[in-house]
Design a protein around this nucleic acid. Structure first.
Lengths: 342, 342
DNA sequence: CTGAAAGCGCTTACAG
DNA sequence: CTGAAAGCGCTTACAG
């Protein structure tokens, strides 16, 4: 630390390091950026000088010079932000933050609630303030993914973006296969009138999990009964509403597959209030393995989404794109977690 | 947008705007920074030029020039990050992000889990990469607040930092008064053997809520019975453990004040499993009014923490500090929310 | 009110 | 392998 006239500390610059090490600033910079074309002697001198001065690179100067920002946005768009209550969100945000930190890349959190926000943030992002975007937005109507993609911004979406085809890189869990496995598990328990609470059908995780449910019904030679299927909204309250409808439409239901744990909380609650025991009268299978799964009695049998792997993969792919590589879609397997509800 | 030889878009610079407007770059810059000393004619020309070119300021260049980063860190330190499951965290993070966005200031999310992380981040922060820090860290042993404060970094802590006295600016809820109000409410219901599950006593919200409980007991002429008080950890599982101990130590307990909603979830669960009805046999009062409060049956009577105001106040104070003003501690009132559990 | 110019701290061809 | 130098896009005294 150098102290200037006014007593405020002035952080050491590359110049201070160069002087201390007896080399040019160019050499220090080369050392900082991979150490190519730096002699062992120079390297040692620079290392010592950095230690002595406590030098830390000024990222603004570096970014101005390189045109890269060395930071990444984690963007949550309007429809999705409602799911801020969703514990999955935390797990993903945290996973991405940690992975990026390993690469010394700060994460900028951005929330786009209104159209105004969306425009402002798209502008901010396309102006080069971040090198890439991790996007949590899945409603099919959301234009953000397409906008960013078209602007050439490195982008990885969480969940398979409906309608964008293979244009955009994404990381998703194996929704269909996971749903299949859960419904097979319910069947194994001897149940035959299996209901389902789906996610919104315009979001990833909506149609695919429903498809998995239908796959297994067909596979088992059971009829598809529309009275057994209700669309939910991935929220707890939506699970409650759905359960009430199912109870009314299909009172003989003996099992139910709920497309998210949060909704399953609501479902179990309503079933119990209606005097149905879980898993005695009705077995319940969830999806996510979120903290919510163990927050109720009975603890929820569910399909675990590999959130750690999802965030790791998102970050890996984004960094690859930033480095100029092409990336595609990745689908990660889910895992059945058997607890008490089914 | 200007297109350079290689076909990549080059964002317009202040230079492009100046040329377009027929003024100097200095004039454009003055317009950008408050518009002082800019004639109406020049202002109009610059406005038009900005619109035409689609100019957006390059923050790296600005930061390099001004020494400010125009960004802020939201820092979660090790002990606190365990509470990532805590829905309160989401509400605060979101509130701060929104408020900062209104000032066009990006929020950098930082997680310090290990001592290594802590050192790295402290270094990052004190190197001027952010203008200030919003800190969620409350364990009394946590050195981060003191470190940042001593380094002269603008800093606002969420929750009253134990042990730092009035050195550090903070925003907190009125824990003691809130606890008093809840315990009075339980008394009003006619209960006399009122238990308490506290938070960790080395965290804000720990001792103060306990103090409020004792205040009202004394006020009502009731004895303080240590068998009725168990320390929790602000987690759901800790609430369960605490409830089991209370049931064993004080089987005649007829009400319980739980220092967080998440713990209250666990408490209600254990009480019900033990065959005690809520609120029939035992009334339960929580603290927070988190989404968890309405996630159980019966819905939880609780003290609402004004999280929106807390995050707004944190941001306001931090910006004031960055602008050179002094700020102190702020305590915001809580509000009793009566539902079904008490 | 305005322009010319220095300077912020880096990186990166370029010439050696 | 190394140094000198240009350049990244802004802001801000300074002189007018």
């Amino acid at each position: 630390m150098t102290t200037s006239a006014n007593g405020r500390r002035r952080p050491p610059t590359i110049h201070d390091v160069a002087r201390e090490a007896g080399v040019s600033r160019g050499t220090v910079s080369r050392f900082l950026n991979g150490g190519h074309y730096v002699s062992p002697a120079a390297r040692r001198a620079v290392e010592a000088a950095i230690r002595k001065t406590g030098y830390v690179v000024n990222r603004h100067a570096r970014s101005l010079s390189t045109g890269r920002s060395d930071s990444v946005a984690f963007l949550l768009t309007e429809p999705q932000e409602k799911f801020f209550e969703d514990p999955n969100f935390n797990v993903l945000l945290r996973g991405c933050t940690e992975r990026l930190a390993q690469h010394d890349i700060p994460l900028l959190l951005m929330l786009a609630e209104s159209d105004d926000d969306r425009r402002r943030l798209t502008r901010y992002i396309t102006s080069g303030h971040v090198d890439g975007v991790l996007l949590l937005s899945n409603h099919s109507g959301d234009p953000v993914a397409a906008e960013l993609h078209d602007a050439g911004i490195p982008l990885v979406v969480c969940g398979k973006p409906i309608g964008l085809g293979s244009k955009v890189s994404y990381v998703a869990a194996a929704d269909r296969e996971g749903a299949q496995e859960m419904v097979r598990h319910l069947l194994t328990g001897g149940r035959r009138r299996i209901g389902m609470v789906t996610g919104p059908l315009d979001m990833p995780g909506g149609p695919d999990r429903l498809a998995g449910y239908r796959d297994v019904l067909a596979e088992a030679g059971l009829p598809y009964d529309p009275a057994l299927v209700v669309e939910g909204d991935f929220r707890r309250s939506g699970g409650e509403r759905a359960a009430r409808r199912l109870l009314a439409q299909a009172p003989d239901m003996d099992a139910v597959f709920v497309a998210s744990d949060l909704m399953a909380l609501g479902v179990v609650n309503v079933l119990q209030q209606a005097g149905r025991s879980v898993p005695g009268d009705i077995t319940v299978g969830g999806f996510d393995d979120s903290p919510a799964a163990t927050a109720i009695a009975p603890a929820l049998t569910t399909m675990r989404q590999p959130f750690d792997r999802i965030s790791a993969e998102m970050v890996r792919m984004l960094l690859a794109q930033i480095a100029g590589e092409d990336t595609a879609g990745v689908i990660l397997p889910t895992e059945l977690v058997v607890r008490d509800s089914a």
